[in-house]
């Protein structure tokens, strides 16, 4: 087990390296440059030159890359070309928003999806099962931006309700923070609830058909104990894998949701960075998101290995 953990952790190093090279190369290929964007309409060529030197954009690419990576390892992602401020603290502030959105979204999806999935499995082919299957299918099929628009339109027209403005962190003002976050998290949660629901249902069904459950039942255990103590534990293994994988689509979904609900998260920072040709910001954000994503996958894998004794570590 320990060997497996170490090997799995070592495996992410070349991936991270590859990811960083890919991001850097892609950024260099982008047409248009941020200096023009930052200078605006009336800047002079001399100033342009001065800024190019200041941001090291005159150096050869490999030197630019190495400088960037060395900085990143020290928590220095460089300065934004637009604001001249260090990127890392800003990124951390943004990350707290995205993390909250992702976690709330995940929680909401679990609260909705797992009980419904179990119910559907234990009431197979009954009304509730049909409802869950249709609901799940709709959930996977409705894009988050479409759902957001429908929800916003509906609430504004019917309840004259509009998410409060001005993001505040949870620690500053928990009530207002939750008021702001509830709607986007709900939308985000719904969009992934569908697949978790289906996975819960199918893995529960699979487990319920297995011999050991029949044995448990035969021994006279109550239905409740059978389901919660024995079946659920086994059914959770694939669900956890799926949840790990879903964090990725949650992070991706957050990019769009943050845009629609004007939340100052990492996804919005990335899109703004792309729009403004702010190379260091985009580089930093994309690398950071990829890093988080890899980390979540790693944790999922390790958790999976920990829970499922059948897995071999060779």
């Amino acid at each position: 087990m320990r060997n497996y953990v170490i090997r799995r952790i070592l495996q992410i190093i070349p991936v991270l390296l590859g990811v960083s090279i890919l991001i850097f190369a892609v950024m260099k290929l982008i047409p248009g440059d941020v200096i023009s964007g930052a200078l605006g309409v009336e800047g002079s060529p001399e100033l342009r030159q001065a800024l190019t030197v200041k941001y090291g954009l005159d150096k050869p690419y490999h030197v630019q890359y190495i400088n960037w990576i060395l900085g990143v390892l020290h928590g220095d992602f460089g300065d934004s070309l637009r604001t001249s401020e260090p990127i890392f603290p800003e990124m951390m502030r943004r990350f707290s928003v995205t993390a909250e959105l992702t976690i709330l979204g995940a929680l909401i999806s679990w609260i909705i999806a797992i009980p419904l999935g179990i119910l559907a499995a234990t009431h197979r082919n009954k009304g509730i099962d049909r409802f869950v299957r249709v609901f799940a299918l709709m959930g996977v099929s409705i894009p988050s931006f479409a759902l957001s628009i429908l929800v916003i339109l509906f609430l504004a027209l019917v309840f004259s309700y509009f998410s409060p403005l001005g993001y505040v962190s949870f620690f500053e003002n928990p009530v207002k923070n939750l008021q702001i976050m509830i709607l986007p998290s709900f939308v985000l949660g719904i969009t992934i609830a569908g697949s978790i629901m289906r996975m819960t249902r199918s893995s529960m069904l699979e487990v319920l058909q297995q011999d050991f459950i029949k044995t448990v039942r035969a021994k006279g255990a109550s239905e409740r104990i059978t389901i919660f103590k024995h079946a659920l534990r086994n059914a959770f293994i694939p669900i956890i894998t799926l949840i790990g994988m879903q964090i990725g689509s949650l992070l991706g979904g957050a990019v769009i949701i943050e845009q629609i609900f004007s939340l100052p998260g990492l996804g919005q920072m990335t899109l703004t960075g792309i729009n403004q040709r702010d190379y260091p910001v985009v580089q930093g954000c994309v690398l950071f998101i990829a890093f988080i994503y890899i980390l979540v996958n790693l944790i999922t894998d390790l958790l999976y290995a920990y829970i499922d004794p059948r897995i071999s570590y060779n």
């Binding site: 047409p31 248009g32 309409v41």
Partner: peptide, 9 residues
């Protein structure tokens, strides 16, 4: 074009 490219162009 996005703002940066637009001004550049």
């Amino acid at each position: 074009l996005e703002q940066g490219e637009y001004v550049d162009t």
